Amino acid sequence: MTETATLQQALARFFNPAGLDRQRQRVCRHLLACRTEAMGGTVLQCTDCDHTQPHYFGCRDRHCPQCQGRAMHQWAERQQANILPVRYYHVVFTLPHSLNGWVQLHPEVIYRLLFQSAWHTLRSFGRDPKRLGGEMGMSAVLHTWGQNLSQHVHLHCLVPGGALGDDGGWHGARSHYLFPVRALSRHFRGHLVSGLRQAATAGELHRVTRPGDVDDQLNALMATEWVVYSKDCLEHTDTVVRYLARYTRRIAISNARILAVDDRQVTLRYKDYRDCDRRKQLVLDGEEFVRRFLLHVLPKGLMRVRHYGFLANRCRRRRLAQIRQALAVAEVTPDADSAASDPEPTYTCPHCRQPTLRVIGTLAPRRPTCGRPPNHREQRYRA
């Protein structure tokens, strides 16, 4: 095995643009160019030992495992002020695997209905006078994968445990699971199947062409139990922020899970939840690995993180102020240091191990001569 095995290395060996739509080709080219000469960058020089090296820019694609760590930290910093001093709940809404084919045919339609049905379910339960009797909030993030890169579409939702009542009071939840999960799953199932039926009637599922397939599929969906998971989280603010940020910026595969790449296969590590969460290794043919990864490329422009209720962008500041007033807690103000722009990054010299690398020039992007990133050892730079 090699310690340098990465998603970029696997794509460089096995990526074939033939037969792929434009969005998947675009994502693969971004990932292949990430932190290479194709992106351009800067030239760094050590002020102590005069060591010089290039530093290439990242692609910032949301599917790139090399570019999500910084984005996750920045997102967490922005969300810090929105956390309430209440119990939070982690709720997961999962689509049945029998819908995976429709997800590939009409991803925008299915993902839209998934978000809408999850929020409609929680909102209906929250407004029930016998439960919380008020307006709830929800932050939801779309995931489409399982540990072995199979298609497993689900929403991770972080829900403040309570509702803002019409009287301006806060109605807190006391249960360890927020609402009964069987009742949640059946309401969620009914709303989403109804939405699919309406979408089919409106012609939005036009790629489903086999006669009777829509009715057969929807009838079968209503005859099966759907999976909804709900559990309370820790109440500490920092923990909740990190918890939410981890889910919002996670991608289908990280470089740390790719153990080896050779001329024919890719070896990755995964956790088998059906076998007591044991960590195992999975060996896939290179083409199969790329195929599974590309299952999780999202349509261009699709928002995979969405906020609802009193956490919606249009009313969040006003509603959070009302809730904090009802809870008799002070409003959280962003820290001046975190609100300021990011300081100039520092780089550690690989020779003298000191943070003394400084920018002395820029590198212009180089267009690849083929589908793979260039691999030149020398490049001109402008001081």
Results as ranks from 00 to 15, higher is better:
110 I>D: 09
354 Q>H: 15
314 R>T: 03
166 D>G: 05
165 G>S: 08
147 Q>H: 08
343 P>S: 10
233 C>M: 12
128 D>L: 04
353 R>C: 10
322 Q>C: 06
140 A>W: 07
16 N>R: 11
233 C>A: 14
252 A>P: 03
303 M>L: 07
135 E>I: 10
38 A>E: 03
4 T>H: 07
158 L>H: 02
376 H>Y: 07
116 Q>Y: 12
124 S>Q: 14
30 H>A: 15
37 E>A: 15
118 A>H: 07
58 G>L: 00
271 K>L: 05
82 N>F: 09
341 S>T: 13
61 D>N: 09
48 D>S: 06
254 S>I: 03
145 W>S: 00
74 Q>S: 05
211 P>F: 12
305 V>Q: 04
224 T>Y: 06
57 F>N: 02
223 A>C: 08
253 I>P: 00
275 D>M: 09
242 R>C: 01
165 G>E: 05
251 I>C: 12
177 Y>G: 00
41 G>V: 03
11 L>N: 10
141 V>G: 08
27 V>G: 13
107 P>C: 08
125 F>H: 12
262 D>E: 07
277 D>Y: 11
164 L>D: 01
19 G>Q: 04
36 T>P: 13
152 H>P: 02
356 T>R: 15
246 R>E: 01
100 N>V: 11
383 A>V: 15
71 A>T: 01
59 C>W: 01
300 K>P: 01
350 P>K: 11
268 L>F: 03
204 E>R: 10
334 P>V: 11
12 A>E: 15
85 P>L: 04
71 A>M: 04
302 L>M: 02
93 F>V: 07
10 A>F: 05
243 Y>M: 04
310 F>V: 02
137 G>H: 03
8 Q>G: 07
266 V>T: 09
338 S>G: 04
97 H>G: 15
314 R>W: 00
39 M>G: 05
103 V>Q: 10
4 T>P: 04
292 R>H: 04
299 P>H: 05
358 R>T: 14
380 R>W: 11
363 L>R: 11
2 T>M: 14
194 S>K: 12
161 G>E: 00
296 H>G: 00
8 Q>N: 03
379 Q>M: 15
189 R>T: 10
220 A>V: 12
45 Q>N: 06
308 Y>M: 01
329 V>Q: 05
224 T>V: 14
223 A>H: 13
3 E>L: 10
303 M>A: 01
193 V>M: 09
326 A>H: 06
57 F>E: 01
194 S>C: 13
129 P>G: 07
383 A>Y: 09
47 T>K: 08
336 A>E: 14
136 M>A: 10
320 L>P: 05
310 F>N: 02
164 L>F: 00
341 S>P: 10
165 G>L: 03
374 P>A: 13
242 R>G: 04
90 H>Y: 13
341 S>M: 10
248 T>D: 04
21 D>L: 14
136 M>D: 02
328 A>W: 12
260 A>T: 07
135 E>P: 00
166 D>T: 02
61 D>R: 01
112 R>Y: 11
157 C>L: 04
8 Q>V: 06
